[in-house]
Design a protein around this nucleic acid. Sequence first.
RNA 1: UCCCCGGUAGCUCAGCUGGUUAGAGCGGGUGACUGUUAAUCACUAGGUCGUUGGUUCGAAUCCGACCCGGGGAGCCA
Length: 466
Amino acid sequence: MTVPSIRTALSGSISPGTPVTVEGWVRTRRDSKAGFSFITVSDGSCHHPIQVVAPAELQNYREQIQKLTSGCSVRCSGELVESRGRGQAYEIQARAVEVLGWVSDPDTYPIQPKQHSYEFLRDVAHLRPRTNTFGAITRVRHAAAQAIHRYFDEHGYCWINTPIITASDAEGAGHMFRVSTLDAVNPPLTDNGNADFSKDFFGRETFLTVSGQLNVEGYCLAMSKVYTFGPTFRAENSNTTRHLAEFWMVEPEIAFADLTDLADLAEDFLKYIFRFVLENCAEDMVFFEKHIEQDARTRLQALIDSDFVRIDYAEAIDILAASGKKFEFKPEWGLDLQTEHERFLTEQHFGAPVIVGNYPVEIKAFYMRLNDDQKTVAALDVLAPGIGEIIGGSQREERLDVLQKRMTEMGLDQHTYNWYLDLRRYGTVPHAGFGLGFERLISYITGMSNIRDVIPYPRVPGRADF
RNA sequence: UCCCCGGUAGCUCAGCUGGUUAGAGCGGGUGACUGUUAAUCACUAGGUCGUUGGUUCGAAUCCGACCCGGGGAGCCA
């Protein structure tokens, strides 16, 4: 007796008549007076549940099988047979249905075979993977993660696990979560009356990382092609459909590379992931197309087939100014692009992903490379329709003197970043990298409009349930 | 943090220009029927209308405060 996944059982690779056992959770049960019940069972391995035909002759038919409700866990053994009904090619003619776990109160079991609101499902985040939608999201998320690792592996990158606890604050990416073992109520105090972090676990003030970039640059200037893929934390009070306090970020960093190389990487990389997901999650993508976003697949395919638009920030400003469109904020050189501007460019003007490059130096981080015009830095954002900024990156400032000057201008403590400056003192090379928000990528692929629905247990201001 | 919108049964929602016992569908229970497939049909149970003050003879309905949720903006990935 084999115990295949439901995916395997339905794949056609097992010949009819083979004895099999499937294990999973009941979606629905329908009784027939002709003397049997239909039980649809799902195990997460694929979109479709398998139909189990349980005959009334089974010894626990009246006592147990007829009392199965949504959510019960079962182990069903029998023969895999070609289905006599429509809707599935194969089903299981059961010889035994063992109930592993009952639903103690079917009346209040939250997951019903019906449409639920996403808001409600967020309140039952531990049970929502049992729904069609979240099963599909979970499989796509997994496939995308696999695609990322594969892409980098095939292209000679090393995966670098940068630290989650960091001492460098003010990395320029927003507020950080403090990591401390000090007594929160009565911390040891300095003479000034402030908390004395020299008595803390690490002997200094520490935080959760907002980016692995600075650390990974060290490995880049040794291994040439590297990337990080791990959790990232931002203590921003952001309440939007595209921000999380805890999210996963992918940060490739390449040596001997400039902004054009980086843009090439971003485009090739995204296309690879989309191709991989379309091929490996075809069934789930059809589901998204049917129920979440009508052009979920065609949108990805069009993107794979097309060249990304590449423009400079200055051109973007010109296009916006010449559009004749009334923006709430007037586009003006020197100011950052507003969400409405980004949306106009990617959704209306180009109708495609747009890579915007070379932003004014004043609005970008200290480590971005100063261009020869002294006015702009070699930074880029990849804007995607419906999501906005999905990637942000730059060529890094590799010249020690220029970097030090910028740090001074921005009031950064060079002592803290001494190790980072070492990378410019000892064998510096041009290098570049970007950050890709993994959940934004999943949002884009699936068409799920709220980022809280593409991560298993979302952390946002005021909520850290589960 | 700011600006809008919302909170009525386990879920999705109607009721909201104040007026008797608060409704439907799904889900649950019972029964009928059927190789069914988010089955169908009948019956049935289930609600301190987010909380708290106020206005009123009377509040789910009007007003204030608070709590929670959603959307948009900013910050950004």
